[in-house]
């Protein structure tokens, strides 16, 4: 028997069997006729950081399975008054939440909460650290288009340093034999990034990185992160924007992914974001299915 997954905090805690089980369950989720696995269950959405996309994805997922949801945000609770994360977590659990989905600006916050609170915690993004549901939905998307993960070349381009999506994806994909290439300027892809997992390499030249790529994953690049860096915004766009021309360097059947929100004209052009290779809309749909599978799993309803 596979060990029961109690909280989903990061990729490294998962066995490959647990990852495969979540993906298999996500594939079976029918968004038109979702199974009512979580009826009478309550899911709290504890969001210390604004994130419309992830929050509504979890909310739809929970509600689709029959659960009720409550949003807890800094502006609507005592968080602002300086209550500790542990105390907030206890309160949310004791008012009746069966699971807490948490987004937090500090790396490791979900791990702290899970050490003290007795209900399952689902990490919906902690600082620059992990975003496991995103990596799982991305794996689901890739496997919808590729026969197997083993041997694929996935290029993750953009601000890898600040990206929990990059960390979670690289940790998950390399576990299945994927070659992951982090690509971006040295400020965004420091050499140390290649130490994340065996199978991860760092590259500062997108034209080289893209050759033979099966998947091109563009990350959001915030303009303010380029302030005082080696590259100007214009130079970044010139060297690292994913354009139709650059997509031709990848394999003909390569897919283009982006965790959103997409800043068109920055990390990708609209032609690419809306082009035939783009899976961006599919990612959003898979996000709901994957989060349904995650919630059902941690609540023991899978």
């Amino acid at each position: 028997m596979k060990p029961q997954l109690r909280s989903l905090l990061g990729i490294s805690q998962l066995t490959t069997g647990q990852i495969e089980a979540i993906l298999a369950l996500a594939r079976r989720m029918d968004l038109k006729r979702p199974p009512q696995l979580l009826r009478n269950r309550h899911v709290a959405l504890l969001f210390y950081e604004a994130s419309t996309r992830t929050r509504i994805s979890f909310e739809f997922a929970a509600k689709a399975l029959g659960a009720t949801t409550t949003q807890v945000t800094p502006t609507s609770s005592s968080i602002e008054k300086g209550e500790s994360l542990i105390d907030t977590g206890w309160t949310v659990a004791n008012v009746g939440a069966d699971a807490i989905v948490m987004r937090h600006p500090n790396s490791g916050a979900a791990y702290l909460l899970a050490r003290y609170v007795h209900v399952p915690i689902v990490n919906a993004g902690d600082g620059m650290h992990q975003h496991p549901s995103q990596a799982l939905l991305d794996a689901l998307t890739i496997t919808n288009h590729k026969k197997k993960l083993q041997g694929l070349r996935v290029v993750i381009v953009g601000d890898v340093y600040h990206s929990r999506v990059a960390r979670s994806n690289a940790e998950l994909l390399t576990r299945f034999g994927v070659d992951v290439v982090f690509c971006g300027p040295p400020d965004f892809v420091p050499e140390i990034a290649a130490t994340l997992a065996p199978g991860v390499t760092a590259c500062h030249d997108l034209n080289i990185a893209l050759q033979g790529a099966d998947v091109v994953m563009a990350l959001r690049v915030q303009k303010e992160r380029l302030v005082n860096k080696q590259l100007s915004v214009e130079e970044y766009i010139a060297e690292y924007q994913v354009t139709p021309l650059r997509m031709r360097l990848a394999k003909p059947d390569a897919i283009l992914m982006h965790p959103g929100p997409v800043i068109r004209g920055m990390e990708v052009t609209s032609e690419v974001a809306d082009g035939p290779q783009s899976c961006i809309h599919e990612q959003v749909r898979n996000g709901v299915k994957t989060r349904m599978a995650i919630l059902a799993t941690v609540l023991g309803a899978a």
Binding site: S107, G108, D126, G127, M128, H129, Q130, Y161, R164, R167, P190, I192, A193, T195, L196
Partner: peptide, 11 residues
């Protein structure tokens, strides 16, 4: 400390 662990932990 700056190193593989800080990168992995996102610190």
């Amino acid at each position: 400390n700056l190193g593989p662990t800080s990168f992995r932990l996102g610190l």
